[in-house]
Amino acid sequence: MTALGLYTFAGAGLFALGFWAVAVRAHLVWKVFAINIMGSGVFLILLSTPARGDPAQADPVPQAMVLTGIVVAVAATAVALGMALRVVARTGRPFLPEEGDLETRE
């Protein structure tokens, strides 16, 4: 197994870990953590699989993508945490209530 292959698998593992956590953890902040982990898993896959040209040469395309991706992830985290705090401010709890608890009221 090559070093790069190792990172590819790690990326897949991180993504799966994040996906699992976002599904099972009800706490909103942990959901945001988990989404960040999922993102970094994808970035690892992108950077560790040189599909184009010489494997020894760094591929600028995924690097550009990951850079953009990191910026987008920071923005998304900021928005998500801001909204999570608003949920806490409105409901007093950092969880999403079950569907139907709040909405069906007239």
Binding site: F15, V22, L28, R90, T91, L102
Partner: peptide, 21 residues
């Protein structure tokens, strides 16, 4: 600014972010 809106928006955001991932 209602609780409903905040919760619905948060739920939407989560679905949306995971979908993007």
């Amino acid at each position: 600014v209602t609780s409903e809106a905040t919760v619905a928006g948060m739920r939407y955001l989560m679905v949306s972010l995971v979908g993007s991932m």
